Simulated scan of single mutants.
Amino acid sequence: MSFKNITVAGSGVLGYQIAFQTAFHGFNVTVYDINDEVLDKAKTKFDVLAAAFKRDLAATDGQLADTKTRLAYKSDLVEAVKDADLLIEAVPESPEIKIGFYEKLAKVAPEKTIFATNSSTLLPSQFAQSTGRPEKFLALHFANNIWINNTAEIMGHPGTDKEIFDDLVEFAKAIGMIALPLHKEQPGYILNSLLVPFLGAAINLLVTDVADVQTIDKTWMVATGAPVGPFAALDVVGITTAYNINKLAAEKTQDPLRLKALEYLKEHFIDKGKLGVSTGEGFYQYPNPAYKEKDFLK
């Protein structure tokens, strides 16, 4: 593995975490997003992340200062990828957006650049031809709160070069991840093959009026010993991501329950800008959600 310069495209829920984690482990990282205003917001989020790294990883002020010196910001795609050995794409979970991005990227990225998608549910084979370099394209998927939940799922498509796959496994380890190689394409990889049905079941219980948010979360937390329930998890994942995943499934199946869930998320959350932890409100209000109160489980 000879990676040195990494570009992360997208500074949303996971993009900015991937960028900071990678810079923290000594790589030069360029953060690309659609405009300077969005990038300025990312810089603010990096300050919050620095505090989390200090609290949870005992990172020193010196390490964090060095990390920030290795972060650059670009809203021009040509500039953002001109030196990239690896580009990690973390743009919204929409096939149209991703295909459009890869078609632009393919025209400007150096021949050496490997492309990796952080898509949580979509398959690399859906975008491989759009990349213009299918043999150098694969998936590298991270869990939220990357510095603590340090999983990295590596999944190729049938045309991915085996040597590049192995390089991505080594890169994942080099940035402090537990590398989890998948031997074949699987929608949702390992993590979301388990997580998405779980979160979907919780939404279905809510929209069919079986129980309210807190009762559903409380049930899961008490019965399994889990630190959070499904709706707290949805707030962390981001309700936009949950909406997009439900939208894809609803369009394919036209299942009435999925359509009802989609309508519920749109009306009560998306349209009101209540997108989870990132906006200060989702199913709970932040920074002090009800599920963290000492009497929540009573």
Score class of each variant (00 low, 15 high):
Lys4Met: 02
Asn5Glu: 08
Ile6Glu: 01
Ile6Met: 01
Ile6Val: 10
Gly10Gln: 07
Tyr16Lys: 13
Phe20Arg: 12
Gln21Trp: 15
Thr22Asp: 00
Ala23Pro: 03
Ala23Asn: 10
His25Leu: 12
His25Arg: 09
His25Ser: 10
His25Asn: 13
Asp33Gln: 12
Val38Phe: 13
Lys41Asn: 14
Ala42Lys: 11
Phe46His: 15
Leu49Cys: 04
Ala50Gln: 07
Ala50Lys: 15
Ala50His: 09
Ala52Gly: 11
Phe53Asn: 04
Ala59Asp: 04
Thr60Leu: 14
Asp61Ala: 13
Leu64Ser: 04
Leu64Ile: 10
Asp66Met: 05
Lys68Ile: 09
Lys68Arg: 12
Thr69Glu: 15
Leu71Val: 12
Ala72Glu: 09
Tyr73Lys: 13
Leu77Tyr: 00
Ala80Cys: 03
Ala80Val: 02
Ala80Gly: 00
Lys82Gln: 06
Pro95Trp: 01
Lys98Leu: 02
Lys98Ser: 04
Gly100His: 06
Phe101Glu: 00
Lys104Phe: 00
Ala106Pro: 06
Lys107Asp: 00
Val108Lys: 15
Ala109Thr: 09
Ala109Leu: 15
Pro110Leu: 15
Lys112Thr: 05
Lys112Glu: 02
Lys112Asp: 05
Thr113Met: 12
Ile114Arg: 14
Ile114Gln: 02
Thr121Ile: 12
Ser125Phe: 04
Pro134Thr: 11
Lys136Leu: 01
His141Leu: 04
Ala143Ser: 14
Asn144Val: 05
Asn145Thr: 08
Asn145Cys: 08
Ile146Pro: 02
Trp147Val: 02
Trp147Phe: 13
Glu153Asn: 07
Ile154Tyr: 00
Gly156Asn: 01
Pro158Arg: 04
Lys162Tyr: 07
Glu163Met: 05
Glu163Cys: 00
Ile164Ala: 00
Ile164Glu: 01
Asp166Trp: 03
Ala172Thr: 07
Ala172Arg: 10
Ile175Leu: 10
Gly176Leu: 12
Met177Ala: 15
Pro181Cys: 01
Leu182Tyr: 03
His183Leu: 09
His183Lys: 12
Lys184Cys: 02
Glu185Lys: 03
Leu195Pro: 08
Val196Glu: 07
Pro197Asp: 04
Ala202Ser: 15
Ala211Gln: 03
Ala211Ser: 10
Val213Ala: 05
Thr215Ile: 00
Ile216Leu: 02
Trp220Ala: 05
Met221Arg: 14
Met221Ser: 08
Ala226His: 11
Gly229Glu: 00
Leu234Asn: 06
Asp235Val: 07
Val236Glu: 15
Val237Phe: 07
Val237Lys: 04
Gly238Phe: 15
Asn244Phe: 06
Asn246Leu: 06
Asn246Arg: 13
Leu248Lys: 11
Glu251Gln: 06
Leu257Cys: 07
Lys260Phe: 01
Ala261Lys: 08
Glu263Asp: 10
Leu265Glu: 11
Asp271Val: 08
Gly273Lys: 12
Lys274Ile: 06
Leu275Val: 11
Gly276Val: 09
Thr279Asn: 13
Gly280His: 11
Phe283Val: 01
Tyr284Val: 05
Gln285Asn: 04
Tyr286Ile: 03
Ala290Lys: 05
Ala290Val: 12
Tyr291Arg: 11
Glu293Trp: 14
Lys294Leu: 07
Lys294Cys: 05
Asp295His: 15
Phe296Lys: 13
